[in-house]
Amino acid sequence: MAWKEYDYTSRFHRISKTTFYRPLVDIEVSAESGAETVSALIDSGTEVTVMSSEIATLLGISPKGKKSGTVSGFGDKQGFIAQVGIVVPEFPKEVLTTNVIFVDGISSDFPFDILLGQEDFFRRFLIRFEKHRNKFFLSLP
């Protein structure tokens, strides 16, 4: 089994003057109208993959005619469900075609771009976190 190694990504917290590190991975998200590379958080606490609705707009995905979806965390967020393709560049043959929830209104109060969740990403990839040295690893079962 071959593991691909990735670095945790830093962000500075101004109040506590602490640098936090997050397991972010670049993914290519595609729809019929195009594909873009976006940084995504690998989040074992998220059940399904969630994306900002701005990414849907960027890919030309319209909410019209799509099923609605609700994401609950600190409060509820409404969105819509649509299918996209997800590829991790280091695993180009593994095209993860999955339904994601595109969530509206998260620009300032819920600042994420993509949360990769259990139902698809964690099913497809083996994931190993080594937070103590700020490395994580992906492989295929």
Binding site: H13, R22, E36, P111, F112, D113
Partner: peptide
């Protein structure tokens, strides 16, 4: 502020898009 506006600035350049959180907030999803 807008991903679409950013895309228009970038054009066909190969980049990675990312949303930057506030440095005053703790993140918990």
């Amino acid at each position: 502020e807008s991903l679409m506006e950013l895309k228009q600035k970038i054009g066909d350049q190969k980049v990675v898009y990312m949303k930057v959180p506030s440095a005053d907030a703790y993140l918990s999803f």
